[in-house]
């Protein structure tokens, strides 16, 4: 008889289909069709939310106006991550940047292909139009503008 403590194996297999919502539809369809970033505008607070949402977190107004945002921005924070989502070591570490865009409140977090520094200028690179599916992965990565 083993004296190892008894442990019962188990898991938590639950699957989802996440609804992206009104503002998410606007954001992802604009990328799919026009390769363009779109923010929602709160005129009372003078904020353009990126990614867009249908409410302003400051004044709780409903937002119905959308404004395009140029796809070149500035690195606000940068890291190089060495593990995958499950915690396994990555063969090739991945650069990740939080990027701010002119005139937009918020920004985007995505992979980078360059080692970047705070303040660097980058551009969002989109997949080819036929490969876009309505996902944040329709943006391939940020690349440095030299």
């Amino acid at each position: 008889m083993t004296t190892e403590p008894i442990r019962v194996e188990g898991d938590f297999p639950v699957y989802f289909r996440y609804t992206v919502g009104v503002a998410g539809e606007k954001f992802f369809r604009e990328i799919m069709e026009n390769g363009r970033l779109m923010a929602s505008r709160c005129s009372s607070c003078n904020l353009n939310y990126l990614p867009p949402r249908i409410y302003c977190e400051r004044c709780m107004s409903r937002l119905e106006e959308y404004v395009p945002v140029e796809n070149e921005g500035t690195v606000e924070a940068f890291t190089i991550t060495h593990q995958d989502a499950e915690g396994n070591p990555l063969q090739e570490p991945v650069g990740v940047a939080l990027v701010r865009f002119p005139g937009a409140y918020g920004g985007l977090v995505h992979r980078t292909i360059d080692v970047l520094a705070i303040g660097d200028r980058v551009r969002a690179v989109f997949k080819d139009k036929k490969e876009r599916t309505g996902s944040i992965l329709d943006i391939k990565f940020f690349e440095k503008i030299s």
């Binding site: 593990q83 995958d84 989502a85 915690g87 977090v109 995505h110 992979r111 992965l137």
Partner: peptide, 8 residues
Amino acid sequence: YTRPLGLN
């Protein structure tokens, strides 16, 4: 917006 990036 974030989880699909597959990052730790």
